[in-house]
Design a protein around this nucleic acid. Structure first.
Length: 609
DNA sequence: CTTAGGG
DNA sequence: CCCTAAG
């Protein structure tokens, strides 16, 4: 599994963000490169699928990667390339890293069998051989001239080792070059279109085709501004000069797209998990002519494949697949450091990316300083704006006789039931993020949340979720059905094993009670876990550990609560810590425990602090 | 703002 | 997870 940090260029430098980022990066292994520190950049973490797709990493993955970085268990390869940097994290060099976490969590069971790259290639070769001729290496050096970009944006860059999503010839993948859509005939465009979207089109409009294809590849809402594609384990942006090569052979490239100065806000590169690869997945890849390394990849791929963004975060939307939302990715944090959109809770309003019938809203989440765009349903900030909201209520003409408590409650639940008990949605199927955005453009940062809140005040749900078209009306606000049949609150974040482990470790290190410490140090990247959450979780862990250990379970094993049972060892450790701490702290003496664990020693020490 | 504890 | 009370 490969993770890539895409660098997102911010136009308006955010000093605070910069600093934060630097800070984080400095504190995390080799992530930083002096040169970058001064750049107003953010990183987006994406996962590179075996078939070449790039998928925004899920929160869990972000956490995992983050933890890897922090733990320094995984090498972070930074491609030293002026301005265009992409770090690749590969677990090939460190099996202990991601792989371990994954196996522990058991989160990555493979469900889908992906198309075999070779097969795909083969298929494509059948389909669109005519593309090959248009390849040209020379295109590759179309320097990043931005002006140029905006006009030659429809170029596709291909290259790579294994699978070509868009390309046609198998050997095409060997080439490094671009396909200039401009040069393609309608027919060729059709081929490309098919290769890109997995379906045919009858549209004759070249312009449209080019646009669509480009968008399909880049998933950018505005091709003229964004134009880079992901392919063959590479992410290539148009106008880039070279492809950075990561250790493991995968490539990733990131380039400032478009003229930075022209971009109103930040957010430039946008990738989402649009399925570039044809819809039909070959069930049983036979053509296994993969080389050893490929096999390796395939293996891993098989194991990791599954990991899709949680349904919780990705909700499908309307049918209008072709109705591209022109929503541009706007970074609300234009004037960061103020109001709602600070690094902590950056709910970047985002955009809708319709794909395959579903629309995804991404959220700019800050992960330990990396601006990471992840798919999400919503999750309006879990903290803050209450004051503002309250203020709003006062101003609200409608009076809003709500009591403070009620208000809080409502906000706290992040759900805003309407009279009919159903969740009302701010965004109708027809309303695009853009519209939504407009409300905020020019609005002082401080007031943005205010505006958002007004929506609430009007009885709308602020959640920037993807709205299911009306028919999904029974989609309850408060809870969501869990795969196992249960239900859970919509915004409940299931604790992953790695989180639990982190928590346990944190407690062992800093002591129970130092939640904010633990939060800061061990959960820096988990923006959604508050210190209170940690505390609560710890409380639960304690309960669990003490409840189960004594009588040596029996209940634990069969509780198919849907909640992942916490491994005994961890519970043990929890109990150990609990016992230790409960004793160490009260009895200042307690020399008896001193010898047990080194952690105990440490613990004792911190306990005294 | 951070904890602790109740709901 | 949410809320409140207390330091």
């Amino acid at each position: 599994m490969k993770f890539i940090f895409l660098r997102v260029v911010e136009v308006e430098g955010n000093d605070e963000a910069k600093l934060k980022e630097c800070g984080i990066r400095n504190s995390t292994s080799s992530l930083s490169s002096p040169k970058q520190i001064s750049d107003p950049v953010v990183y987006k973490l994406v996962r590179l699928e075996g078939d070449g797709r790039i998928v925004p990493a899920t929160d869990d993955e972000l956490m995992e990667v983050e933890s890897l970085l922090i733990d320094d268990k995984c090498e972070m390869h930074i491609v030293a390339d002026p301005g265009q940097t992409v770090g690749c994290i590969s677990n090939e060099g460190s099996s202990s890293g991601i792989a371990q976490l994954e196996s522990l969590e058991g989160l990555l069971q493979s469900r889908n069998k992906e198309a075999d790259p070779d097969k795909l290639n083969a298929r494509l070769e059948e389909t669109a051989p005519s593309l090959a001729p248009s390849l040209s290496e020379s295109h590759f050096n179309q320097s990043g001239s931005f002006g140029e970009c905006s006009h030659s944006s429809d170029k596709l860059v291909a290259g790579g080792s294994t699978l070509s999503v868009v390309t046609s010839k198998p050997d095409f993948s060997k080439l490094k070059g671009e396909i200039c859509l401009d040069n393609l005939s309608i027919k060729e465009l059709h081929e490309t279109f098919k290769a890109t979207f997995g379906r045919e089109t009858t549209v004759k409009d070249k312009q449209w085709l080019k646009r669509r294809i480009s968008m399909g590849l880049t998933n950018s809402c505005d091709v003229s501004v964004t134009s880079f594609i992901i392919k063959d384990n590479k992410l290539v942006k148009k106008g880039n000069e070279e492809i950075s090569n990561c250790m493991d052979g995968s490539y990733a490239e990131d380039l400032p797209i478009g003229n930075q100065k022209d971009l109103p806000t930040s957010l430039v590169s946008q990738l989402d998990y649009h399925q570039v690869v044809p819809e039909k997945r070959l069930e049983n890849p036979n053509l296994d002519e993969n080389s050893g390394s490929d096999d390796h990849q395939t293996e891993q791929r098989a194991a990791k494949r599954v990991r899709k963004p949680t349904k919780r975060y990705i909700e499908e939307l309307s049918e209008v697949e072709s109705k591209e939302s022109n929503g541009r990715l706007m970074n609300l944090a234009k004037n960061p450091g103020h109001g709602l959109i600070s690094l902590k809770s950056r709910v970047g309003l985002v955009r809708n990316v319709p794909l395959g019938g579903r629309t995804v809203v991404t959220r700019l989440d800050s992960l330990g300083g990396y601006g990471i765009q992840v798919p999400c349903v919503s999750r309006v900030r879990r903290s803050r704006p209450r004051k503002n909201f309250m203020a709003l209520l006062k101003f609200n003409p409608s009076g809003m006789g709500m009591e403070a408590t009620l208000v809080k409650k409502v906000l706290g639940d992040h759900s805003f039931p309407t009279d009919d008990g159903k969740e009302s949605r701010v965004l109708k199927a027809s309303s695009t993020p853009k519209h939504f955005h407009h409300q905020f453009i020019g609005v002082p940062e401080k007031d943005k949340q205010f505006s958002v809140m007004s929506a609430i005040g009007l009885g709308h749900n602020t959640e920037l979720k993807c709205i299911n078209s009306s028919r999904d009306s029974d989609d309850n606000v408060v809870t969501v059905p869990t795969p196992k049949g249960g239900i859970r609150r919509k915004h409940h974040r299931a604790w992953t094993l790695s989180e639990v482990m982190k928590l346990v470790e944190g407690v062992s290190r800093y002591g129970a009670g130092r939640w904010s410490e633990i939060k800061r140090l061990a959960f820096a990247s988990y923006s959604y876990r508050t210190s209170v959450d940690l505390k609560d979780k710890w409380r639960n862990l304690l309960k669990a550990s003490f409840a189960q250990t004594p009588q040596d379970n029996g209940m634990n094993s069969r509780k198919s609560t849907g909640a992942m049972p916490i491994p005994a060892p961890i519970l043990l450790k929890v109990r150990e810590l609990a016992e230790m701490q409960s004793q160490v702290l009260p009895n200042l003496s307690s020399t008896k425990i001193a010898g047990s664990t080194r952690k105990n020693v440490h613990e004792k020490r911190t306990g005294f602090l």
